[in-house]
Structures are given as structure tokens and as C-alpha cells.
Design a protein around this nucleic acid. Structure first.
Lengths: 328, 328
DNA sequence: TTGTATGCGTTATCAT
DNA sequence: ATGATAACGCATACAA
């Protein structure tokens, strides 16, 4: 009985305005109706504070104007920033965002994919390292940073970024480099940071050392690594490329504890472009991922059901930014 | 025709299994049916890769298992962390999260509220400073940090946090304090940080200075403020309480540029408990907001339609954490 | 131009 | 225990 009070429907609006159901629908969807009708309907909508029920609408249209976004978490500033720009890019296109935080848990990822499909989202944007994700046919799916079956993938130019890092260290006078990463063995786009780095080192003809530790290993392994390469007050390297800014931050702490000065004794470059507290200084000199453009690319892809993008890899250019841990 | 291929419905499952529609529904909802039936239905579901359409379900049940979350952005680590824990707390209750980033734009906030209502979410959790937000009757609404009409509000114990800051500075030997904030004039819970601070200073009988600058003012006003209180190589204060960690970070930069040592010459306390890069060291000594508990409280409130919580204010205790910018 | 009737996928109320 | 059917709120093809 009080149904009409708590949740007015189109029927209530029609009754209030004294018109037929179809007329109300037309007014709502901007289909021309007689002015006097339109005004009466609009007044009734105001009066009842009517809101269209997007569930009923979606049921009819098979369109929900909702995109699911799966990220590992929102604690990592890169994921947070990405989610933020995804939200904005989606909103600009009239879409809303269902956010799922997966904590890198493959089972959870699969669960969320299914939930999203059940919600009949118009597409899924997903940052996952899980190679076995199952996505139902016909779902518009875009992957970030990991190439997935026949789905399009958006990523920074990690290879180019790796080269750029080596090049910048070289330009700043480094002649003996190290690359450090904590690393998933899964093939994913960020792995190419190493490849690009190596390629550039060899092009430049300078020696380099790699230190890649297991996903589960403690950070202290890096401390050990540094000490192993520290003799007579000098580090074996004069430049270190870290696979992320977070790692760079750690490495810098270790270096400072060893009494080494950054950048005077060792220069350090990270990757991501992370800023302190979200919008202040850079954490370190870094290869910046174009997060806003990544987000836009994802949204464009997921919304354009253009099959010609299937299997394609969209690589966006990275840039170098000085953040105090290199000479320039 | 190929409808059944792209998006199988319960009807398709029923046909495939050779049972009636109602039987399928029962299997899906765990209502007991004959074993042989259940198995046939389950097989058909597998075979067709059937997914319930939550829109149709929501239409029937008036329940969507979706909560809308409105935050200003995900760039600020506090908001990001809050959203993260909200997501987790919601998931733990079987709810999904529609995230809206408002950029402090009141018009956008209102638009998103309406969108959320149209999506027939089961509730809204909102961090907004907009005093004029309109929420439809019957919508479960929880506010964070700002008390709103007759809706429940969840917040840290900002008053207690302010007192705690003054107290800790005093314990560490400070005898002349300053409070700085960049501040909305809107009444909101965080304003109580100042009140608590003042109250504690007066209790302790120590002098204090307030510097509250306009929302729109540049940060450099703080630099000016510091210089105005800097004479003969000494700052007038020996302890500064900053309304957020972000501001504390800035203040510390200014102090260091002036050649002052933190914490030897001046001690600084922030508010929030922000960590560098999301999960590493604290930015500064700080009053920590219990973000995870805040999130849980919001979720409990928004899900429990208990009217007795109307207008109530849930204040969660803050704690002090040493972060290197105080003596202890 | 306006009103009526049907169906979207699901659940729940009935008979069977 | 199972199967047929109405209803949820909306859009649309069609009739008036």
C-alpha cells in the first residue's frame, strides 16, 4: 500500500499526471510529447521524487552503463591512481564503476568476474596476474599490464621505459648498472622493463647486474645483495634501476643506512611516477607511467566493442622525471 | 535466435534440463528439490554457463546487494585506504561497491547520489562536505566525518585526537605550541581537532598559536607564517600540530628549508596515519585514524536498517604513532 | 500525438 | 515435490 510512498514507479507518475504509462516513458527518454503533457509529467516526477529503476531499464535494454574494475588493492598508489582515472574516464562517458579489490587472490578474482557478469555489466577492466581467469563469451574485457587470451591489453611501454632508465643513468655518468626487482615469474608486460634495460645496457656497452628475488622473499634480500656488492666503502654499481618506485624507496633507505649518498655515490631510478601523499613530490627519479592515458585507453577499448582490437596490445609511452635521486 | 547462445536464461536451463522454470529457480536458491532434478539442472547450468541476471533478481526482490560509496578522490591516501577497507568490509557481507569519485564538487555529489538511487542500491556511504545534499526518503545513508541531517555519522574521535596531539607534544617537552590547518569553514567533525587541541593546551597551561588559512589559499601562507614567527635563528614554537599528515609533510619541508631540525628544534605531529607508498613508513609522527574500523562501522550501519542509529554519531578512538618527527 | 499490450528474467503463489 | 502463471518496472511496437 505505502509502496507508492517509498518507491514511486512510472505507474504512480502516470496516475499523478493523469496520463498513460507510455507517455511518462517518452518524457523520461526525451521523446517528444505534447507540451502540456510533458509539463504535467515533469511536475508529477518532481512531486513524487520519482527515480527510474535502472534494474528494470537494464532488464529491457541489456545495457547497464556500468563497468566492473578489478584491481589488487587501493593501497598501492599506482592502483589507486589508476582507479581514480578510470572512474573519471568512465563518468565522462556516462558510465558508473563497480570496483572490486582482489588482493591478488586468483580465486577472488574469478568470483568477482562472475559477480560482475551476473550484474550484467557492459564490460570489465581488470588488472590481474592470474593466467587462468575465465571470462564468459560476449563480455567486453580489457586487461591491464598482462596479455590475456584474445583480449585487448593496455599497458605502458615497459620495454621503452626500461631502455629509458638505462639511458638516463648513462647520461648522468653511470657506467656500472644494476637492475633489481621483486618478481612474479608470470609473464606480464612489466617484465619487459628488464628486457629493455638489458638491451640498452648492451647497446651502450656497459656492464650490468640483475637481482631478481622471489615474490615471497623478504625485502632484506636486497639489503644482502647490496652488502655483497659493497667493498672498501664503495658499491660495485653507480646506478640502480628498480622495477617500481616502492622498491626504489626501500633500496634508497638501505643505501643510506650503509652510509652511501644518493645521488652522489649511487643514482637510483624507479618506475611508476609515484608521488608522496598522492600529489606532492616524486618519491625518486623515475620512469612515469601515463596513468591518465592508460585509464582513457582502457575505457575507450572496453566501450568500443570493435572486434578489430581483439588480441591487440596498446602500449603507451613513458617519460622520465627527475626526482632527486639522480644527478638530473 | 542466438540469444540463447550469448546469454542463457533460466528458461534455457529449464529446457536443457527438461524441467520447469520454477524448479530451476529452486535449485539456484538452494530450495530442496529431488536429487535427480537437482543434478540435471546443475548439469544444464554448467553446460550453458548460465549466470543469474541480478537485474531481474533485483527487480523482484528490491535488493541489489550493492552499496554506493562516494569519496572526493582516490589520490589522497586516506580516501584510498578508506575505500579499500570499505570494499573489504562490504565484500565480507556479500555486498558489492559502486564507487563514485566526486572531486569535492557538490553538483557532482548530488548527481551521483541520484544515480545511485536509480541503481536501487541498498545504501549509500558518503564522505562529503556539502551541507545541502538531498537524499531520498527510505535510502539507507551513512555519512563519514560530517554530521548530516538525521543520518548517522561515523568519524574518528577528532576531539580526542586533538587533545592527544597536544598531550604528546607536551610529554616530549614542548611548551609553546602551534596548530595549523587549511580549512573549510563548514562545520565538520575534523574541525574538532582544533577544539581538542586548544582544550588540552589550556588544561596544561601552555601557550598556543593558531594559523588557519583559507581553502583556496596557497600553501606558501604557511611558509610566511613560519617566517613571521622566526627570529634570531629561533622559531617561536617548539611543537606544531598539523591538521593532516599532508600538511605536516609540507610544514616539515618548510622548516628544513629554514635550517630548522625536526624533531630537535621543532617537533611536528600530523593527523591521519598516512604511510609512504601506502604500506611503508609513516610520513610523520601522527594521530592515527582507525581506518579499518571506520570502514567496518560504516558498513554495519548502512546494512543494519536500525532506525535507532538515526542521527547518531559513532566516534572511534584515535591513537598516537611515532614517526620520527617527535622525540618519541 | 497518445494510449495499450507485451515481454525482458526472475521469484513466488498457486494448483497439481 | 513439481509445474504453470502472475507480477516486478520499464520500453516499445502497435493500435487508436
Amino acid at each position: 500500500m505505502s509502496k507508492s510512498v517509498s518507491n514511486p514507479t512510472m505507474k504512480d507518475v502516470a496516475r499523478e499526471a493523469g496520463v498513460a504509462l507510455g507517455t511518462v516513458s517518452k518524457v523520461i527518454n526525451g521523446i517528444p510529447v505534447g507540451d502540456s503533457y510533458r509539463i504535467r509529467v515533469e511536475e508529477a516526477i518532481q512531486k513524487l521524487n520519482y527515480r527510474v529503476n535502472t534494474y528494470a531499464k537494464g532488464l529491457k535494454n541489456n545495457k547497464t552503463y556500468t563497468i566492473a574494475v578489478l584491481v589488487p588493492n587501493l593501497i598501492n598508489p599506482f592502483f589507486a591512481k589508476l582507479s581514480y582515472y578510470l572512474n573519471i574516464a568512465l563518468a565522462a562517458n556516462g558510465y558508473q564503476m563497480l570496483l572490486y579489490s582482489t588482493d591478488y587472490n586468483p580465486q577472488l578474482e574469478q568470483t568477482y568476474i562472475i559477480m560482475a557478469e551476473q550484474k550484467k555489466v557492459d564490460g570489465i577492466i581488470c588488472l590481474s596476474y592470474n593466467p587462468n581467469l575465465e571470462i564468459s563469451d560476449g563480455v567486453s574485457f580489457v586487461s591491464i599490464d598482462r596479455h590475456f587470451g584474445s583480449y585487448p591489453c593496455v599497458s605502458s611501454d615497459n620495454y621503452g621505459g626500461g631502455r629509458l632508465a638505462a639511458q638516463k643513468l648513462y647520461e648522468n655518468g653511470c657506467r656500472n648498472l644494476a637492475f633489481v626487482r621483486i618478481g612474479s615469474k608470470l609473464t606480464s608486460e612489466p617484465n619487459k622493463r628488464k628486457d629493455g634495460f638489458i638491451s640498452e645496457c648492451e647497446l651502450l656497452g656497459i656492464p650490468y647486474t640483475l637481482k631478481i628475488v622471489d615474490d615471497e622473499a623478504p625485502y632484506s634480500e636486497f639489503d644482502d645483495f647490496l652488502h655483497e656488492n659493497y667493498h672498501d666503502g664503495r658499491l660495485a654499481f653507480d646506478g640502480i634501476f628498480c622495477v617500481t618506485d616502492t622498491l626504489a624507496y626501500q633500496i634508497i633507505c638501505y643505501l643510506q643506512k650503509m652510509g652511501l649518498r644518493v645521488p652522489e655515490d649511487v643514482q637510483v631510478i624507479g618506475f611508476d611516477g609515484t608521488q608522496h601523499l598522492g600529489n606532492l613530490d616524486l618519491v625518486c627519479s623515475t620512469i612515469v607511467q601515463p596513468v591518465e592515458e592508460l585509464a582513457k585507453a582502457c575505457v575507450n577499448l572496453v566501450l568500443s566493442q570493435d572486434a578489430s582490437y581483439a588480441s591487440s596490445l596498446i602500449c603507451l609511452p613513458t617519460t622520465y622525471a627527475y626526482g632527486g635521486t639522480t644527478l638530473a
